[in-house]
């Protein structure tokens, strides 16, 4: 993305409720890290640098979901000082595994973990960044894929749209040449309803996809859930497999609630 005066664009990386894995993906780009640092100015990235620049920033990468009142305020400020805001990972994009609190009584959760729950300030829900501010792009995955992160940053630098297809994992299985685990082994697999991006890892290792990239652009749960049942899952199994890292993604949420009502 061109910036005024030919200066390097400023990159910021922000953390909310998460495991840090998605921002860590940037540090896992061993081959690209020093190169990226020459093209952009890393202005705010606490995990990597104790220097902090107050902004504004050309590109903000946001890791994590909103679970406290202070964080709900902080994301407003970050949006106001960011030209582009990209969420990275399932927490920032769908609320993460911590969104399992959305189905429970958070006061009971707090009491289950902490002896003095009154010390702990938290919201009753875990929500994605897009529930609070406009988001320019959502990068999915628990965790995100390293190659896709580099693609988003390079596309941003070149001023073009990043190439991040939203079809299902099935496409990636075919590209990889992995035999279908559903057809060949009757293994329950969320690949048909899950967003691509991991390279169809799980089927390549002989297990069914567990949906860590969230819903794809083409889902049909009313046709799909009977397949899971045919392959041996009962209602509880189906609810559990939908209620993990993308549990609050609207499509997974609706399907698991419908299943739980059965």
């Amino acid at each position: 993305m061109p910036t005024e005066g030919g200066r390097r664009p400023k990159l910021a990386v922000w953390k909310f409720a998460s495991c840090d894995g998605c921002q860590l993906t940037l540090l896992d780009c061993e081959d690209e890290l020093l190169g990226i640092a020459e093209e952009v100015e890393i202005s705010y990235f606490l995990e990597a640098s104790s220097a902090t620049d107050p902004g504004p920033y050309d590109l903000s990468l946001v890791d994590g979901s909103i679970t406290t009142r202070q964080d709900a305020e902080r994301i407003q400020h970050i949006r106001s000082v960011s030209r582009r805001l990209v969420t990275i990972g399932a927490c920032a994009t769908a609320g993460g595994i911590q969104a399992l609190r959305n189905y429970a009584d958070v006061a009971e959760f707090r009491a289950a973990v902490y002896a003095k729950p009154e010390y702990i300030a938290t919201l009753a829900t875990s929500t994605p960044i897009s529930a609070h501010v406009p988001v320019d792009l959502e990068l999915r995955g628990c965790p995100i894929d390293r190659g896709r992160l580099v693609e988003v940053i390079t596309a941003f630098l070149a001023g073009r749209k990043p190439d991040v297809p939203d079809h299902s994992v099935c496409f990636e299985c075919k590209l990889r040449g992995t035999p279908c685990v559903i057809v060949a082994h009757g293994t329950p697999c969320l690949g048909p309803v899950t967003h691509a991006g991991c390279g169809a890892l799980c089927p390549a290792y002989g297990r069914g996809c567990y949906g860590c990239f969230g819903p794809s652009n083409s889902i049909n749960f009313s046709a799909f859930i009977p397949l899971l049942r045919r392959d041996g899952m009962d209602t509880l199994d189906v609810v559990r497999v939908l209620r993990t890292f993308n549990t609050a993604a609207p499509e997974f949420d609706a399907a698991s609630r419908e299943e739980a009502r059965r």
């Binding site: 595994i97 959760f109 289950a112 702990i120 938290t122 559990r240």
Partner: peptide, 13 residues
């Protein structure tokens, strides 16, 4: 922010 793993692990397989 607390994420309550020990609470939501209950009920899982």
């Amino acid at each position: 922010p607390p994420r309550f793993f020990e609470a939501f692990l209950r009920g899982r397989a």
